[in-house]
């Protein structure tokens, strides 16, 4: 009875035609000559569904992150429709800039912190209804259709990455539904990723020229992010918890 298997199809033959239409969108079939069929998959970069072979992640280079810049935060807020209303304790903060001052050397650096998209997410373990879940490609999300707003995931998250929506919401983005009484967090801009794009924060950071955040598939050794992870020393937050986050940091 977990929420995960709720994707079973409703019964009834009427779905066969719809399924045919759906498959037709992804697979173009052309009969070139009798017996010779050309089948082309895709057509765009979009995946038909999340790919279990992938593990999406971020690499954040604190050495390149400008302490006075908050382009990633603004971009996330614009993209997903959450707002700073001047109440930091109750406002949603899908991503926040953290300023770090070394206690011994006084060196100041900064880095963004968001949902770390753990491989072993505590929020998913503790969620009583299974509303917190991890997609096969490693993105951790909240299913707001089954979230009851108990906030146990917020108790469990080591990164304070989740926000509870304390007030009525309207004017949401179509791709980022959010409503009073449910919990939310960074979605890794899943609506963009599913269409072959990159998260808004990554794009915004690149636009400033800092390029402190890189996005990519950790499982693909040829990806930029995997190469850098292999080449330079990096760390994750709270490594003691062995959660294997998808978000990595360098030069902290």
């Amino acid at each position: 009875m977990t929420g995960n298997n709720s994707t079973t199809r409703p019964k009834g033959a009427e779905f066969s035609r719809r399924d045919f239409l759906r498959s037709g969108a992804a697979v173009a079939t052309a009969t070139l000559a009798p017996g010779v069929t050309l089948i082309a998959f895709g057509g765009s970069q979009a995946q038909a569904r999340a790919d279990a072979g992938k593990r999406w992640g971020l690499l954040i280079d604190a050495g390149r992150c400008d302490p006075d810049c908050s382009a990633c935060v603004t971009a996330c807020s614009d993209e997903n429709g959450w707002k700073d209303t001047g109440h930091p304790e109750t406002d949603a903060q899908w991503i926040r800039k953290v300023t770090l001052k070394n206690k011994f050397t006084g060196h100041v650096s900064s880095a963004p912190v968001m949902c770390q998209h753990c491989e072993e997410p505590p929020c998913v373990d503790v969620c009583p209804t299974g509303a917190s879940f991890k997609r096969v490609d490693g993105i951790v999300l909240v299913d707001k259709h089954t979230c009851i707003g108990c906030r146990y995931c917020m108790m469990a998250c080591p990164f304070s990455a989740r926000s509870f929506i304390h007030e009525p919401v309207n004017n949401q983005k179509t791709h980022a539904p959010r409503g009073q009484g449910t919990v939310e967090s960074c979605t890794l801009c899943v609506h963009r990723v599913d269409n072959g794009g990159t998260p808004a924060c990554v794009e915004a950071c690149a636009a400033t020229g800092n390029e402190a955040i890189i996005f990519g598939d950790l499982n693909d050794p040829t990806s930029d992010i995997a190469k850098r992870l292999a080449e330079y020393p990096t760390s994750s937050l709270r490594p003691d918890l062995a959660l294997n986050p998808g978000v990595r940091y360098s030069n902290l």
Binding site: M1, V126, G130, T146, I148, G149, G181, V183
Partner: peptide, 24 residues
């Protein structure tokens, strides 16, 4: 709860790896 109207969800959808669900 943030959504007390969804009590039926809490009572019908269990994530058995959650100690909270065990408690219910």
């Amino acid at each position: 709860l943030g959504r007390p109207d969804r009590i039926i969800v809490a009572m019908t959808t269990y994530n058995l790896s959650s100690i909270f669900a065990w408690n219910l």
